[in-house]
């Protein structure tokens, strides 16, 4: 057993090496300036005829994640057959380097990291790993698949259809996010765990500068034959499967888990700040009272009462 494992490890290592060898070539063929170089283009067409999506996503979370968010992560793992789930990572020490190392170790090309802070705020990192960009989201409005009101169900590992709302093409950062999402959430064609049918749809929609995620099952009334009749498509209904969540992009970094900031959400307020402000509002009561008291005292000192003319009357 041990021997075998070693062997496989060695193999993996060699594969990694190979990938490393290939890696420097990559930017050449995908850089935006490739159009001018004719010979490069020829190379590229040759390579793209065999284009093969080898995306592999590492999914982990930080320690002390709350159960709800953990379930969300597990749902994501269920939805993506091309992902690898890893152990929890210590939140404090999870600076970019360790995570990058981990991703490299698992030979993944991208990573989703669920970071839970204070047991209530969930941040999601999406990162293209060797040298791609990374995004940090704040996750809101989480509903997991286990909730009973979501009645749909679909094949595990069937490739989803990704639908994007048109406002993803509005700005550069949305474009980048769209590309990253398609790469991470799109299941590679002919992946060994994927199934050849399409029975669910992912919805990514930008509303109110947040990315909303929904997952629907496609259900068509089956006729006797396997083929869907032309009328069948009109009768098609969608049933929600879940999970639901809403991503609020905070920052986009140039490197993976770090690097120069390329984008910063100008509207973002951290939940900590919101809570602090709320607390401050509540704390104002006492301060106000004390202030009023001191003001009264000062007022009394400034305007002393006149001595009563009758006060000495009975004292003789």
């Amino acid at each position: 057993m041990g021997k075998k494992r070693k062997h496989s490890e060695a193999e993996a290592a060699t594969r990694e090496k190979k990938e490393e060898e290939v890696a420097p070539e990559r930017p050449k063929r995908t850089l935006s300036g490739w159009k001018e170089k004719k010979d490069d283009q020829v190379n590229q067409t040759e390579s793209t005829t065999f284009f093969r999506n080898k995306e592999k996503v590492l999914v982990t979370c930080s320690r002390r994640i709350s159960y709800r968010y953990r379930h969300l992560m597990l749902n994501v793992v269920d939805l993506l057959p091309h992902c690898k789930k890893d152990n929890k990572v210590e939140s404090k020490s999870s600076n970019g380097a360790t995570l990058n190392e981990l991703v490299d170790l698992k030979s993944c090309s991208s990573c989703m990291f669920f970071e839970c802070r204070k047991g209530k705020d969930l941040y999601l990192w999406m990162s293209k790993c060797p040298n791609g960009p990374s995004v940090k989201f704040l996750v809101n409005a989480v509903h997991t698949m286990e909730e009973l009101k979501l009645t749909g169900n679909h094949l595990k590992g069937s490739r989803p259809i990704l639908t994007f709302s048109s406002n993803f093409d509005k700005d550069a950062h949305w474009k980048l996010l769209k590309e990253m999402i398609t790469q991470i959430f799109g299941i590679p064609k002919e992946h060994r765990k994927s199934k050849p049918y399409h029975d669910h749809v992912f919805v990514f929609s930008i509303v109110d500068d947040h990315i909303w995620f929904r997952n629907y099952q496609i259900s068509v009334p089956h006729n006797e034959s396997d083929k869907i009749a032309r009328g069948g498509l009109d009768k098609m209904t969608l049933v929600e499967v879940g999970p639901r969540f809403c991503l609020n992009p905070i920052k986009i970094f140039g490197g993976s888990f770090g690097g120069p900031t390329l984008y910063e959400n100008p509207f973002y307020i951290s939940p900590n700040q919101i809570r602090a402000l709320e607390k401050k509002k509540k704390a104002g009561h006492y301060v106000k009272k004390v202030k009023a008291k001191t003001r009264r005292k000062m007022h009394e000192l400034d305007n002393p009462l006149e001595a009563d003319e009758f006060s000495e009357m009975w004292k003789e």
Binding site: P27, R29, T30, L31, S32, Q44, T45, S47, T48, F51, N53, K128, N131, G132, P133, R159, P160, I161, L162, T163, F164, S165, S166, F168, D169, A172, K175, L176, K178, E179, M180, T182, Q183, G186, P188, K189, H198
Partner: peptide, 19 residues
């Protein structure tokens, strides 16, 4: 975006994305 995007003629089947 240019860095990470797939080659242009990768084909829709790989993406399965609809706008």
């Amino acid at each position: 975006l240019g860095d990470i995007s797939w080659p242009e003629n990768a084909g829709w089947v790989h993406k399965l994305s609809v706008d």
